[in-house]
Design a binder for these strands. Structure first.
Lengths: 336, 336
DNA sequence: CGTTGGCACTCGATGATACCGAGTGCCAAC
DNA sequence: GTTGGCACTCGGTATCATCGAGTGCCAACG
């Protein structure tokens, strides 16, 4: 364990490095508020911190840079809980007070809000539809052999799937299937549709196809992930190659979703560098928080920035936004 | 006008610069196939081409780099029509043969296809809903004061808008409004809803609100723009600042849409550098093509890359994809 | 007269060298 | 245990020479 002064030294190094992105030397640390010892003493401490793996020296006679272990200790033990700056807090408040529009709109705007607060890339993952209750199902014919299944869920999400038939299907048959489909699905959670209704009445091919699609959960990430602020993220790095690699990751939504889930699953709020488990993100950190609807875990929000991100600020922003988003989404769910 | 040999020289410079991203000298041009004169002669021609504004010399004793005017001439007069490589052509064919899913899925996948073909960022803009015919409208209650308007259009697009009421609205009232709304809207193009149906029957507040939303076309760009391949785009530049600026533009979908519309509106397929009219895109070029559904102009596809992009290849890719996309989307629109 | 080889010249890129200074480790003194 | 002093390290910056790709100009050539 780190003695109290060494912890202070480590904190000073991390904080200054986050700010300047330059290796920090003993002189600067000694000048930091709260450090009341000489540079020489700081040097001794830093030598120990390096041996213990909290700091790293790019080369002899350079300052020190935090290692992942250093950041980790900073986040776990040293991060003063840091409030949002009140301007930002106001902004969050007013955002959620005035927010309107459907679920998707809301989530997309939330990602913009998070970017604005943190200046890093923001990721918002919408609720899985699994637990949501089907509020309405409709079959709409588009052409002789193509129809659309449109599902409205209780959380405000709208799902659509295309059906293609092998034979022409007339309106009558379509609407009959639609009615039966509605009868089967409305009022039930999507997940329940999987245990088929065990009805011995023969099933129309149209109905069967539509049910199959509903169960399938085809392309589940497609409309669930909202990513913003990639430009802000880009400016935080200096190698264009790094930026390109990160963008490539972000383009694969399912990777992003599983990354966030994985981090939360490990019980963490923060994944630092290689802790993300994704090699191209070795220079990145991720700060995540779940949000809830009516107390149920619903989705995840997070920000992605360089490992030398401002963790206290990012943690505060993510926490506040997730809390307020949860409240906002839980409003007025009592009725109907 | 350029004499034939000077044109060949210009083409050689552009082609080599596109390939190497290095200023090209007279020696290389003289060695290019089709140029059967000496380097000295090429030098004379290049001096003229520079005076005429087609080429630029970063500094004395460096090779030449094409100017925007040079690229423009290349694209307008020198671009040999260039087929896609047959591997790629096959890929496009098989993509559209096996493509399935709804409009949005299709467009999103198309953007991925374009990226894959060109290695630049790809933009696909979906049809405006204006001309599409409403195939189905539905009002779905989410909570006592919140309902969703879900509209299915003939082109397969699904639009959704949230309604918030000042007072509780019960299911009866909602479904009544839904029925009347459907009666008014189904079968008509969205644009027509604007000339209100001039009905003197008093209009329920719910119905009025829903109609208003339909007309509003609120957040029209939201679900219409599909952008992919930003990581490939990033690798084409070497300054991270440039990349960040471009990403910022791409995040503003409405800017992208109006850029593409603007270019097409000027009757162009290509906008080079400042021709885009967007300052941060000074180092970028855009290649665009419209696509049609049943002969009607429907949307736009395009790629965005560095000014030294491979124009013939990009033009070919965009042309082929737009053609096949048009065909695909026009299929089976005869009935219903 | 357009084309060409020859030639002096330019100037960025590359590499060697020196220098500076921020930072270190160590040590003796407090 | 802490501190000031000090010799040392080494990356960054600046200076300078060198190299070579490329140029413009010119005289000669068919």
């Amino acid at each position: 364990m780190l003695d109290e002064r060494k912890a202070k030294v480590l904190r000073a190094v991390v904080e200054e490095y986050i700010e300047t992105a330059q290796p920090v030397g003993s002189g600067h640390v000694a000048a930091a508020p709260g450090i009341n010892v000489s540079a020489a003493t700081v040097r001794n401490d830093m030598a120990v911190l390096e041996q213990e793996g909290y700091l790293h020296q790019p080369h002899t006679s350079a300052g020190r840079v935090p290692t992942e272990k250093g950041y980790r200790f900073f986040v776990d033990a040293l991060g003063r809980p840091s409030e949002l700056r009140s301007v930002d807090a106001d902004q969050v408040r007013s955002f959620f007070a005035s927010a309107h529009g459907g679920l998707e709109t809301m989530l997309s705007d939330t990602s913009r809000l998070l970017t604005h607060l943190t200046h890093y890339a923001a990721v918002v993952v919408g609720p899985e539809k699994e637990t949501a209750v089907v509020r309405s199902v409709q079959l709409v014919g588009l052409s002789a052999r193509v129809a659309l299944v449109v599902v409205v869920l209780s959380n405000g999400a709208v799902d659509k799937h295309t059906l293609e038939f092998d034979e022409d299907v007339d309106d009558l048959r379509l609407s009959a299937a639609g009615v039966r489909l509605a009868g089967l699905a409305v009022g039930h959670p999507v997940a329940e549709l999987r245990d088929l209704p065990d009805d011995d009445e023969p099933m129309d091919a149209v109905l069967a196809a539509a049910l199959e699609t509903l169960r399938g959960g085809e392309r589940p990430e497609q409309d669930r992930v909202f990513i913003g602020g990639t430009s802000e993220m880009a400016s935080a790095f200096d190698a264009v190659g790094t930026v390109a690699e990160i963008l490539r990751i972000l383009e694969h939504h399912y990777v992003v979703v599983s990354l966030l889930d994985d981090v939360l699953g490990r019980g963490l709020n923060v994944a630092i560098g290689t802790e993300t488990g994704i090699e191209p993100l070795a220079d990145c950190s991720v700060v995540v928080a779940p949000y809830t609807v009516d107390g149920e875990n619903a989705g995840t929000i997070g920000v992605l920035g360089p490992t030398r991100m401002n963790y206290p600020q990012a943690l505060a922003a993510v926490a506040v936004v997730s809390r307020r988003l949860s409240n906002r989404l839980s409003e007025g769910h009592q009725e109907r």
